[in-house]
Design a protein around this nucleic acid. Structure first.
Length: 513
DNA sequence: TCTGGGGTCCTAGGACCC
DNA sequence: TCTGGGGTCCTAGGACCC
C-alpha cells in the first residue's frame, strides 16, 4: 500500500509539533555535476582534475572535479586562483545542453517515483516519498527508504552513463539536504526520525541553508557558533538580530522544525541576462548597445516561455564592484526586445544624467531583467472602444536593428476623422499625437498595448492584446512580421570585450518545463 | 589582474488611496 | 481644521542559493 498521504504534514504520532513522523523527504544531489558530465563524455579527463566555469580573466569556477578539489579548487573561486592552485587541470567552459540533458534524465527518474519532485537546480532536487506509489517502497521506515534510495541511485548511475548521486533522507527538507552532503560523493544518509537534533546540534550554524557569511558573522557576534548555540537564543533575540522572517525561520530550523512542503511546480518570477566584461566599459554608447543586445536575449526567453512582464530592471556594476539597480514598471506587460531595450537604455541614461556615479569611470557588468511576469491577458477590445476613439500603436524607428512586429498606427474607427499613420520618437514610454488623442504605451512582438482616449473623455484604461487578435485587425496595419526568434543573437565571441558566458544566452533556466 | 550568471526572498521607505 | 491607520504598489538594496 502507498505510504501515508502527504495531505497532513504532521501525521498522527508525530513526535513533536513541527516535525513529520517519517523520514519521507529525499534530497538528491549529483556529485560535481558539470565536471562529472565532462569526464563521462571525454574519457581522457577521467581521473584528472577538471574545472568547469568561466575561463577568461574574470571567470569563476562553477564546478571542480574531486581531483581538482584535492588541490584546493572550490566553486565560486576565481578561475585565476584556481589556475594558481591547480595549473595542470583541464579548464572548460560549460556545455549546458549536455548538462540539461543529463539533468532531464535524472529528474525523469525522480518523477517516476513520486509526483512531488522539486528541482532546485540542474543537479539537485527534493522528492516527497510520502507521495510515492512504488512497490519497492512498502513503508517509510528507515530501512525501507534506505533500500529504496539505493535502487534509485543505481538507476541514476545506469541511466546517465555513470554519474553518481548523493542522497539524504529525513523528516524535513532541512535534514535531507544536510544529510545528502554528509557522505559525498556517492553517499547515502538516512536520518531516523527523532535523531535530527543529535545530528544538527554539534554542527556549525552555517550548515543551515540561509545562513551565509553575513548571517554567520552576526550570529558569531551574538556568541553563536553551533546549531546548539542557536537553539539557546529566543525568537525575540533572533528577530532583533536578523529581522522577522529570517529570525523566526532560524528559530524553528534550529529545532529541526521544518514542515516546508515539496513543491513541484514553481513559476518563474523574473528573467534576466547579464554579462561581466573582461575589460571595463567606459563608453555609454557601447553600454547602450550591450543593453540592447541583452534585451533581445531576455525577450527571446520571455517569448519562448509565453511570458511578459511589467517591470524592466537594469543592473550596473562598477569597477569597484559597487552595484546599482534601476527599474521602471510599465503600465502593461512587455515581451518584445524593442520596448525592453528602450526602457533599459532610458534607465541607463537616467543614471548617467543623474551623475550619482560616473559610469564613464568604468563598468564591469551590465544586465537587463524583466519581472512582474504574467501570462498573456486578452482583453475585450470592444468593451473599451467608443466612436471617436483614436487607437495608436507605436513603432520604434531607432530599433530597426531589433526586429519586432512593427505596427503602424491604425485607421480610426468609423465616424472619426481619418488620421494618417503616425510614428513616435524613441525614448519615451508615453506619447500622444499632435491632436492629443492617441496614447501609446508600447508594442512588440506578440503583444500590442494601447490606451484609448476620446475627444471628450479622459484617457481610458490601458489594454493589452495579442497582436494576432482578430479584434485588433480593423485598427492596425501590421507590417510584415519579423520573428526575433529567427534573428541570431550576437555571438559574444564576436565581441572582443565580452567575457564568454558559461551559459549561452537564451538557453537558460526559466523554461524548465 | 580578486570577486559569474541565473535566480529567490526579504526589508524599508515613500506614494497613494480609503 | 493639527492629524490615524491599514493596505497596496513601487523602488532600491542586500543576503543567499546553486
Amino acid at each position: 500500500m502507498p505510504p501515508p498521504s502527504p495531505a497532513s504534514p504532521v501525521p498522527p504520532g508525530a513526535g513533536a509539533a513541527g516535525r513529520r513522523a517519517h523520514a519521507s523527504i529525499l534530497h538528491l544531489d549529483l556529485d560535481a555535476f558539470f565536471a562529472a558530465v565532462e569526464q563521462r563524455d571525454k574519457p581522457s579527463l577521467r581521473g584528472k582534475p577538471v574545472v568547469v566555469g568561466g575561463t577568461s580573466g574574470r571567470g569563476v569556477v562553477a564546478t571542480a572535479s574531486y581531483e581538482a578539489r584535492a588541490f584546493g579548487v572550490r566553486s565560486a573561486m576565481s578561475t585565476r586562483e584556481a589556475r594558481a592552485r591547480c595549473p595542470h587541470a583541464a579548464y572548460l567552459r560549460g556545455r549546458f545542453d549536455a548538462y540539461r540533458e543529463a539533468s532531464g534524465v535524472v529528474m525523469g527518474i525522480l518523477r517516476s517515483v513520486s509526483p512531488l519532485v522539486e528541482p532546485l537546480s540542474l543537479d539537485e532536487a527534493f522528492v516527497d516519498l510520502a507521495a510515492a506509489d512504488d512497490p519497492l517502497l512498502p513503508d517509510l521506515e528507515p530501512a525501507s527508504v534506505r533500500a529504496f534510495a539505493e535502487t534509485l541511485r543505481a538507476r541514476v548511475h545506469e541511466a546517465t552513463g555513470g554519474l553518481t548521486a548523493s542522497v539524504g533522507i529525513g523528516t524535513s527538507k532541512l535534514v535531507a539536504k544536510i544529510a545528502s552532503d554528509l557522505e559525498k560523493p556517492d553517499g547515502l544518509v538516512v536520518v531516523a526520525p527523532g535523531t535530527e537534533q543529535d545530528l544538527l546540534r554539534p554542527m556549525a550554524v552555517s550548515v543551515i541553508p540561509g545562513v551565509g557569511p553575513a548571517t554567520a558573522e552576526r550570529l558569531r557576534r551574538a556568541g553563536v557558533r553551533t546549531v546548539a548555540d542557536l537553539e539557546s537564543l529566543s525568537v525575540d533575540e533572533l528577530v532583533r538580530q536578523l529581522g522577522t522572517a529570517h529570525g523566526r525561520s532560524l528559530h524553528e530550523l534550529a529545532r529541526a522544525h521544518d514542515l516546508r512542503p515539496v513543491v513541484a511546480e514553481r513559476e518563474a518570477k523574473s528573467v534576466s541576462v547579464e554579462s561581466t566584461y573582461e575589460h571595463d566599459i567606459t563608453d555609454p554608447a557601447v553600454m547602450a548597445d550591450v543593453l540592447t543586445r541583452q534585451a533581445t536575449g531576455v525577450a527571446t526567453r520571455l517569448a519562448a516561455a509565453g511570458l511578459s512582464g511589467r517591470t524592466v530592471t537594469i543592473k550596473v556594476r562598477f569597477s569597484d564592484f559597487t552595484t546599482l539597480n534601476r527599474s521602471a514598471t510599465l503600465p502593461a506587460p512587455v515581451d518584445a526586445a524593442a520596448p525592453i531595450a528602450r526602457v533599459a537604455r532610458t534607465l541607463l541614461g537616467d543614471l548617467v544624467g543623474a551623475a550619482e556615479r560616473d559610469v564613464r569611470s568604468g563598468v564591469r557588468l551590465l544586465g537587463v531583467g524583466v519581472s512582474g511576469l504574467a501570462d498573456w491577458v486578452q482583453d475585450d477590445l470592444f468593451s473599451v472602444l467608443e466612436p471617436e476613439v483614436a487607437v495608436a500603436v507605436e513603432t520604434d524607428p531607432a530599433d530597426d536593428a531589433s526586429p519586432e512586429e512593427a505596427t503602424t498606427a491604425a485607421a480610426p474607427p468609423e465616424g472619426a476623422a481619418p488620421e494618417p499613420p503616425r510614428e513616435w520618437a524613441a525614448g519615451a514610454d508615453v506619447e500622444h499625437d499632435e491632436h492629443g488623442r492617441g496614447w501609446v504605451w508600447g508594442a512588440g512582438r506578440g503583444v500590442v498595448t494601447v490606451r484609448f482616449e476620446t475627444a471628450t473623455s479622459p484617457p481610458g484604461p490601458v489594454r493589452s492584446f495579442r497582436a494576432d487578435d482578430p479584434a485588433l485587425r480593423p485598427w492596425l496595419r501590421p507590417t510584415p512580421l519579423v520573428d526575433p526568434l529567427a534573428d541570431p543573437l550576437v555571438d559574444p565571441r564576436d565581441d572582443p570585450g565580452a567575457v564568454l558566458p558559461v551559459e549561452e544566452p537564451g538557453e537558460s533556466s526559466g523554461d524548465m518545463a
